[in-house]
Design a protein around this nucleic acid. Sequence first.
DNA 1: CGCAGCCTTGAACTCCGTCAACTTCCGTGG
DNA 2: CCACGGAAGTTGACGGAGTTCAAGGCTGCG
Lengths: 267, 267
Amino acid sequence: MFTSLAGIGAPATPARAMLMDMIDSAPDAHPLIRKLESIADLTREEKEALLSLPMVVKTFPADHDIVSIGDRTSESCLLLDGWTCRYKMLPDGGRQIMSFHIPGDVPDFQSLYLKTMDHSLGTLTPVKVALIQHRDLQHLVRRYEGLATALWRDSLIDAAIFREWMVGIGRRTAHERITHLLCEMATKLRMVQLNDGHSYPWPVTQQEVADALGLTDVHVNRVLRDLRTSGLITFARGWFKAVDWEGMKKLGQFDPGYLHVEPGIAA
Amino acid sequence: MFTSLAGIGAPATPARAMLMDMIDSAPDAHPLIRKLESIADLTREEKEALLSLPMVVKTFPADHDIVSIGDRTSESCLLLDGWTCRYKMLPDGGRQIMSFHIPGDVPDFQSLYLKTMDHSLGTLTPVKVALIQHRDLQHLVRRYEGLATALWRDSLIDAAIFREWMVGIGRRTAHERITHLLCEMATKLRMVQLNDGHSYPWPVTQQEVADALGLTDVHVNRVLRDLRTSGLITFARGWFKAVDWEGMKKLGQFDPGYLHVEPGIAA
DNA sequence: CGCAGCCTTGAACTCCGTCAACTTCCGTGG
DNA sequence: CCACGGAAGTTGACGGAGTTCAAGGCTGCG
């Protein structure tokens, strides 16, 4: 069944072959299955349906729009490798980043039901995505109730994360906000088994953190220094380490309930 | 078919009779139909299915939780009358309001798929809600694809509004934020035909506006004074009036695209 | 008619922003 | 292998939007 990934009329690019190899060698390595299984139960049939979903793999360089505000697309993208973010620009040149995305996310899933993009989706690093036609997604959702539920659940969790960010931006201090974000990303990475203990890659610049949290890059820099000197965290060449996880959770007021992780996966 | 609202085993309270009267006299006055028709097309069959959905009407006083953070419920509520808000409290006693809701909204729809509430739902005014059992909603979504799409669309628009609020809280000045909120509520009320031109009820205290926008009540007061003296708006005994709608849209950077209204309904 | 909740205003303060300079890091090409 | 250049990180001095604290004032309801 895995080979059905060859899909309907999808060209056999080298990138496609890579994805197929990845999945053939370990079915649960399919990023979307891993993601959805962290928030819902899937039947064997549903997992097979996901594996046989026609996909075209595409790559983008860093700092590049995958989809831009105002676009009307007929496909959504599953993030296979790299980080992306959703953002909006302001008239004065300012930017608000509204979410960060890691492999397994489908950051523009909403375009299936909201035809016009109300924000942009950009890359933070070079990324590899799998494009899925809306008609194929629609078919999947119609045919498999459990998948519809899992995807709906996922989009509702997305909204829950937005709400939590609103709390941070609206009411938390810069120290609390930044610490909270670090806790959240650590947890999300652990959910899809992309971090080792409390150490993980951090490809996000301080400017990008600032744009996500409603701060300036200068202030983010000062706060990170504080967090380092107080022994909570360390940074080294693109890697982040939570030295004092309990201290971080406390300072950041981090309670992972809003991530609605399946019991047993949460930290 | 309208009388089928009597539903399965639902007690015939006086409030129920009021709802039935309302709907018998004008089917499109059903708040949920009106709301969903503003964002999606519904077939006659789907509207009938909504009308025959078993509902129990309940009232709450102002400043009261309908559902609290941590609750696990087996029903969602359709707001029939009054305003509500979603919010979270912070350790220091601060509060972040994450959305305002008006008649036609189903503010805790998400509890259908996310069993534990990650925030509270409270009343701003005395409200009347119609409680809908999750099993009935689930049945509806399974049976009528158009309704499933409309409801999914609605929850994605919810998320889009969160994103827009993040932009405001994160990057806009207090004047811009407050003006934007006023524009948004005016548009949402117009979508369900609850305002007359650019004048509408405003039952929200300045403290609540502050909690929604990440400000203090004192500062909200000062900004509202500025907006009044500059001739953009007026307030009088619980009623708000947009004196200079174009000026407000410009100052608040208000572009209603993120509300994804059906063409022809937007301002 | 009294009181409680909400609105209003002033004065002092502070967290974070702005501006500007400098350093470190790292990929590229000579 | 090193020199170069641009992007990202770092630090200091200063300023301002919004907060905090405090004291009234209005108004609608029991």
